[in-house]
Computed example of a mutant assay.
Amino acid sequence: MPLTLIDRSLMASHTRHGLTGMARFLAEFWYFGIKEARACLFVGLFFAAVFLLPRSGVLGVPRYDVLLIVAVGIQLAMVATKLETLDELKAVCLFHIVGFVLEVFKTSAGIKSWAYTDYGYTKLFGVPLFSGFMYASVGSYIIQAWRLFDLRIRHHPPYWMAALAALAIYINFFTHHYIGDYRWYVAACALGLYARTTVVFRPLDRDRQMPLLLAFVLIGLFIWLAENISTLFGIWKYPNQMGAWSLVHIGKWSSWSLLVIMSFTMIANLKHIKEKIHVPE
């Protein structure tokens, strides 16, 4: 069955009058899980490739290069099957560029926050080109979830304020190596900006809502877990993992949560998404 038909079935909004109590909770929880899994299509397929590809590569092609081919193939297929629009693809490409620039800086000789230790033909400045897709996958997830859950945002801060906060988050990823880490000051600003913001979503046939800040933190948690899996499989390594694998520092959770805020701000500027965002006068 084509995914577009599955999506249409998942988003069918006819009211289930017979569902009450625990039966309703279980049904909504089930649909919530299915929609979350579907929204993670790009992430799921990409990480399946990470798990399944041998470190030695395939048919003489290094693993990093195969991962790039897989990522590009998934992205093109999503556009071809209309799971993403061309405008959404442009946003995803912007994520790729923003993420790749950050990767080049973090892996540079003067910083060495982490390293891509395997060989690859498609490495530029020591960073494999597929790495930008790991950031783009966050944007892809948000775009897919927006449609599947019929997301709406209430009390979103003015766009210029949100843009300044996102820019401060991105700049701090670079400057904390030279002038100190101000992430908690930036996080405090984001907390103030989004304190009243709620996200309205529809797991089944009724609207539910939660604080948008909580959504940022939860998504950041799952990215941190995925990062642990990636380092376990040797996709990249932090300095403390060169001898033997160890858990990624819990502090990275906060970094990923801030990155999600930045990603959300970029997605929120898409024309068809702006229509479902309420900014108080």
Score class of each variant (00 low, 15 high):
21 G>K: 04
50 V>H: 07
49 A>W: 01
17 H>I: 11
43 V>S: 00
53 L>K: 02
37 A>E: 03
33 G>M: 10
51 F>A: 15
26 L>C: 12
32 F>A: 10
52 L>V: 13
23 A>T: 08
26 L>I: 15
59 L>V: 06
58 V>M: 12
57 G>A: 11
29 F>M: 15
22 M>G: 04
27 A>G: 01
39 A>F: 01
61 V>Q: 04
56 S>M: 08
31 Y>S: 08
21 G>N: 07
8 R>Q: 14
9 S>K: 09
43 V>P: 00
52 L>Y: 08
38 R>A: 11
13 S>W: 07
51 F>Q: 10
39 A>W: 03
20 T>G: 06
30 W>N: 14
62 P>E: 03
19 L>H: 05
53 L>S: 02
46 F>K: 00
45 L>P: 00
54 P>T: 01
44 G>E: 03
44 G>W: 05
43 V>I: 09
40 C>M: 14
13 S>C: 11
8 R>N: 13
49 A>Y: 07
58 V>W: 11
58 V>N: 07
35 K>P: 02
26 L>Y: 10
57 G>I: 09
59 L>T: 09
25 F>D: 11
9 S>L: 14
57 G>M: 05
64 Y>R: 00
52 L>E: 01
26 L>N: 03
12 A>E: 15
14 H>P: 02
37 A>Y: 12
13 S>Y: 10
38 R>V: 08
33 G>A: 09
38 R>D: 02
35 K>C: 03
24 R>T: 01
23 A>N: 10
53 L>Y: 01
37 A>W: 14
18 G>W: 08
62 P>R: 01
13 S>P: 08
60 G>A: 12
54 P>W: 06
46 F>W: 12
16 R>F: 11
27 A>Y: 04
47 F>M: 15
36 E>C: 12
9 S>D: 10
51 F>S: 07
52 L>Q: 10
59 L>C: 15
42 F>A: 00
31 Y>T: 09
33 G>E: 05
50 V>Y: 06
58 V>G: 11
31 Y>Q: 08
40 C>P: 02
28 E>T: 12
45 L>A: 12
29 F>Y: 11
32 F>R: 10
27 A>V: 10
24 R>Y: 02
15 T>Q: 08
53 L>V: 04
45 L>D: 06
59 L>K: 09
36 E>D: 11
30 W>V: 15
49 A>S: 11
19 L>C: 02
24 R>S: 04
46 F>Q: 00
20 T>D: 09
15 T>K: 12
16 R>Q: 13
35 K>L: 10
60 G>K: 06
29 F>I: 08
25 F>G: 05
39 A>G: 03
21 G>W: 06
41 L>A: 13
64 Y>H: 02
53 L>D: 06
59 L>H: 06
8 R>T: 13
27 A>Q: 06
51 F>R: 05
19 L>S: 01
21 G>S: 01
54 P>R: 01
19 L>K: 00
58 V>T: 07
23 A>W: 12
38 R>M: 10
33 G>S: 06
47 F>I: 12
58 V>I: 15
55 R>Q: 13
40 C>T: 04
60 G>W: 03
13 S>I: 13
26 L>Q: 12
47 F>N: 10
24 R>H: 03
20 T>H: 09
46 F>C: 08
29 F>N: 06
36 E>H: 13
61 V>S: 04
60 G>C: 09
30 W>R: 11
18 G>C: 06
39 A>L: 07
22 M>C: 12
40 C>R: 13
56 S>F: 11
52 L>H: 11
